[in-house]
């Protein structure tokens, strides 16, 4: 007998829940190893039976950067504050890629693992959380490319990058997880989410200064524009890495607060829908 079975067994009461569900994040903590294993599985499986393997983590953002470079850098000539366009775009594509992958994988995580949900008990939050976190590895791989490009263009980041980058990544992840919690729970019943996702991702890309600089937005719209947390993340990355633009301002705090609100409401919504997942999926 193992450790686990030696202690006095605890009694679990199963009954129909009603009202606002408790978050029971302690349960999630007990299953932290499962989060780790889900991430590990996701990574193991992601590039199986591809000739290029993990290179895809690099090829995707690099190709996007080349296309953007041609369209916005060479043809449209968007202003970049004197920063070479390739690194201007790539420094934004990194956090954007992290966010977009997290949002998409997270929103599909429940339907993708429907057989687990309908057969076995575990805190369902494990699924979106591990899908979102798995995106960090791709991020780390393409970060190496960014470092190489910075050497090439001879750009030295400021020391603030050390604390600023993790914080902006955290904001990107919080935003993605918050939205993914809502969408994954809705997706269990309404697969419409699968059709909304590509559109949502594309739309969000347009309202985020990835291909262009936030400065092209006219002043009257700046406030509304900066409420998009991803605008804050992308600007923050450029600020910390390339010394472009000004640092975090009040708008960032507002958008961070919005992200937190989405995350917390997403957690509650997810938890209260969770009880019917196994029946509806």
């Amino acid at each position: 007998m193992t450790e686990l079975t030696k202690h006095e067994p605890t009694t679990i009461y199963i009954k129909p829940s009603s009202g606002l569900a408790a978050l029971r994040l302690g349960d999630l903590w007990k299953y932290r190893e499962l989060v780790f294993f889900m991430i590990w599985r996701e990574l193991k499986v992601r590039y199986k039976q591809t000739a290029l393997g993990a290179l895809w983590a690099i090829i995707q953002p690099v190709m996007t950067m080349l296309v953007f470079n041609f369209l916005f850098g060479t043809v449209a000539k968007v202003p970049t504050d004197g920063i070479p366009y390739p690194i201007f775009a790539f420094s934004a594509l990194l956090p954007w890629g992290l966010f977009a992958a997290a949002l998409n994988q997270g929103s599909r995580s429940l339907t993708a693992n429907h057989n687990m949900i309908s057969k076995i008990y575990f805190p369902r939050l494990v699924l979106p959380i591990s899908s979102v976190l798995a995106g960090l590895v791709d991020f780390a791989i393409s970060f190496v490319i960014l470092v190489g490009m910075m050497f090439y263009y001879n750009i030295t980041p400021s020391w603030t990058a050390l604390w600023a980058l993790p914080l902006f990544m955290l904001l990107a992840i919080i935003t993605a997880l918050g939205v993914a919690l809502w969408l994954s729970a809705i997706n269990v019943k309404y697969r419409d989410v699968n059709y909304v996702l590509p559109f949502l991702t594309q739309f969000w890309l347009f309202i985020t200064p990835v291909a262009y600089s936030a400065k092209v937005i006219s002043d009257q719209w700046q406030l509304v524009y900066s409420l998009n947390p991803m605008a804050g993340v992308v600007n923050g990355f450029r600020w910390a890495l390339l010394n472009a633009g000004s640092g975090p301002d009040a708008a960032l705090y507002v958008s961070a607060a919005i992200s937190l609100l989405v995350l917390v409401s997403g957690l509650f919504y997810f938890r209260s829908m969770e009880r019917t997942f196994a029946d509806t999926i």
């Binding site: 009694t11 679990i12 009461y13 199963i14 009954k15 129909p16 829940s17 949900i117 309908s118 057969k119 076995i120 008990y121 009880r275 019917t276 196994a278 029946d279």
Partner: peptide, 11 residues
């Protein structure tokens, strides 16, 4: 895996 509609279980 799923909740009962009514009633309770203790395990």
């Amino acid at each position: 895996v799923t909740e009962p509609t009514t009633g309770t279980v203790s395990v």
